[in-house]
């Protein structure tokens, strides 16, 4: 006898993501999921973003395989920070984020950031229920990475090119990147920032504020 199931493997994660989304909607929190390879500048971008947005109540879920170093780096700029150590697992899942939303006082924040595990592949597969998914690409990684890891850019709402102060030392072609990104995802918002010079951080933060306002008035 043949029994048809047609059951999706990621269905459980999708359901959890949907629950997180309802919780966030009810409490008006804007959740931002940052993904990018190790060293792409996720923690540095968060540090400077939190500093600039210090007028808001902010919270961070900091994902790392081991250690709480990044959480400690951010603790002076943020009202609340929760460290997750996945002990080897390469991505975060919606169920665990939901557990934290229920246990910790995260829903009293206005802006909730998630620093995902450094990886351009798996985090793109797991919806966390976030409002916006942002993928980081540092100029030292090369402008061809969207061609090589297109899914991460396809499922993102914004891309942030980081470390633009290093552009003079890298053969990074911003025009080519722009052209490739338009083809992969025509709705992708693009930012270029440097945490060393502060370039571009203003535009990036203004965009976040605009999204927060829109969510609150929805």
């Amino acid at each position: 006898m043949r029994v048809y199931l047609a059951k999706e493997l990621l269905e459980a994660n999708q359901n959890n993501a949907g629950e997180n989304r309802s919780l966030l909607r009810a409490s008006g929190v804007l959740m931002v999921n940052l993904i990018g390879s190790p060293g792409s500048g996720k923690t540095a971008l968060l540090e400077h973003t939190l500093k600039k947005l210090s007028g808001y109540r902010t919270a961070v879920i900091e994902g790392d395989l081991y250690t709480d170093e990044d959480a400690r780096r951010l603790s002076s700029w943020c009202n609340q920070i929760v460290q997750i150590n996945t002990e080897g697992s390469c991505h975060l899942e919606a169920g665990y984020i939901g557990h934290l939303l229920a246990q910790e006082n995260l829903l009293s924040a206005e802006l909730l950031f998630i620093e995902n595990i450094g990886n351009l592949v798996c985090p793109a597969e797991f919806d966390l229920g976030e409002d916006i998914r942002v993928v980081l690409l540092s100029v030292t990684e090369g402008n061809d990475k969207p061609r090589k890891y297109p899914l991460a850019f396809k499922v993102a709402d914004a891309a942030v090119v980081t470390k633009t102060d290093l552009l003079p030392y890298c053969d990074f072609n911003l025009n080519q990147l722009n052209e490739d990104l338009r083809k992969i995802n025509e709705n992708l918002a693009l930012f270029t920032v440097s945490t060393k010079t502060g370039e571009g951080l203003g535009d990036w933060c203004k965009w976040l504020e605009k999204l927060l306002q829109r969510k609150r008035s929805a």
């Binding site: 006898m1 043949r2 029994v3 048809y4 199931l5 047609a6 059951k7 999706e8 493997l9 990621l10 597969e125 969207p146 061609r147 090589k148 297109p150 899914l151 396809k154 490739d180 083809k183 992969i184 995802n185 025509e186």
Partner: peptide, 27 residues
Amino acid sequence: PFFCCPACGKPASSIEEGRKVYIDYYE
């Protein structure tokens, strides 16, 4: 990498169908 129409270059509307992994049946 671009998921575009080879004839006119228009990007695909959604890639969600192609991302599904599921158990179809057991026997």
